[in-house]
Amino acid sequence: DFVNIASGTPFTVSEVEALHDLFRKISNTVVKDNLIHKEEFHVALFRNKKKQNLFVDRLFDLFDQKGNGVIEFGEFVRSLSVFHPGAPEEQKAAFAFKLYDLRQTGFIERNELKEMVCALLDESELDITSDAVEMIVDRTFDQADTKGDGRIDQEEWTAFAKDNPYVLRNMTLPYLKDITMVFPSFVVHSEISEADMAAK
């Protein structure tokens, strides 16, 4: 099964195995059923299940590809693979578009962007006036909404991300590049036995 899951992602089979170890841990923190519930996703990210975060909720929904309220292992690996440094930029851009299309209308609308900026300011210490927020949103639309219809479609977004690659910065997790090296504890639990490790 690991082989199957690894295919079509930049992960090797042993990396998928390492991810399974991580998945098992996260998916059993609240409900011991080997599925990641929203609460467990929050706990893993924030150590706090109560903290509300617009983006984490959207991320959870996107990881939950089947939309059945839980993240299964295959969904976890496939979604994380988009954040791999080796994943194609177009894939990252498409994922980010879905994230930002809060109401899943197929467009990033002005009020959605404003909502995201406000959510961001809420969680940060930044104190920015609502006039300034309007200005930032206006200016962003000036740049990205090239067709000028008041919403950003997938095509406009892809072009915008291509011209401004830094907007996809959050779509790359350097950790994923060599997951078994960065998290050597995984290796112990993988096929390499403890005795082999001790011998090294």
Binding site: L22, K25, I26, T29, V43, A44, L45, F46, R47, N53, L54, F55, V56, L59, L80, F83, Y100, L113, M116, V117, A119, L120, E123, S124, I136, V137, R139, T140, Q143, A144, F160, N164, Y166, V167, L168, R169, N170, M171, L173, Y175, V182, F183
Partner: peptide, 25 residues
Amino acid sequence: RSCNAFQLISSMSSGFDLSGLFESE
């Protein structure tokens, strides 16, 4: 000057910091 909303979101939101997933000790 070149600041835009998506830049702010991508560089600042803790909601995107998935590294927490890897520190779930």
